[in-house]
Amino acid sequence: MGLGQWLEIGRMDELGRLDTPAHRLDARAKVITTIVFIVVVMSFPRYEVSALTPFFLYPFALIALGRIPPGYILRKILLAAPFALVVGMFNPLLDHQVIASVGVWSISGGWLSFASIMLRFVLTVSAALTLIACTGIYRLGAGLERMCMPRVFVVQLLFLYRYLFVIVDEGARMMRSLELRSARPSSLRLRVYGSLVGHLLLRSMARADRVYRAMAARGFDGKIRALHRASFQWTDWAFTGGWTAFFAIARMWNLADALGRILAGGGS
């Protein structure tokens, strides 16, 4: 992981702190809607392509409402693409059965399912990314906790996030000082590596100890208490209910196909 990716996290963190209609929604509403979205998208049969397209409305709407730069989300999707791409690429190679034709071209099932995989990939990834960009990790954590995630888990997740930059920064500083002193800095001999990362580990543990001290000094006794303020508003109900209804409709009827038939004036 390069440092560039860390800057990206910082960007995501800033987006998560915006104050827009999308951000003001309760985290639980967005989590539930996103889960429903992903489950519905993934429940389509393997060769489905056109019926998936109406689902783009959801991430697009959130991106627009949440004032998230679309290019940013797009870049992150492209960065994450290789795994799905590699595994999906086997489909056209292995499945030659022709199952559709457009004019003079015939399309094999492999290409269709590949297209379907990539569409789903973009849909699911963009839904997850927009969820976090419109919610931020802290609101998300609070939401998860109220959805019965164990508090210990949520709290250490938030601690992880809180100290991510602090520790990564320490690691980067150590790497820099090492680079200044070595000829081939890109990778280290195992022994040097062990002591460098070991040092970083010891420092991290010392940091954890100091954090604990600061917590103890303010009365921490192992129980993590929280102030709950946000509550589920009617807008949250409307958001979840409205989108779920839309997903259900788009799952039952192929909206794209219907539209195409009206416009192309054809179809069976």
Binding site: R162, R210, A214, R225
Partner: peptide, 26 residues
């Protein structure tokens, strides 16, 4: 009341408000 050397060790909550509220809450 203890104020530690590195504020990063002392400020571990998501927002300033929650950080300041941590002690009274406990």
């Amino acid at each position: 009341g203890m104020v530690f050397q590195d504020p990063d060790d002392q400020l571990f909550m998501p927002t300033v408000f929650e950080d300041v509220a941590f002690g009274p809450l406990n």
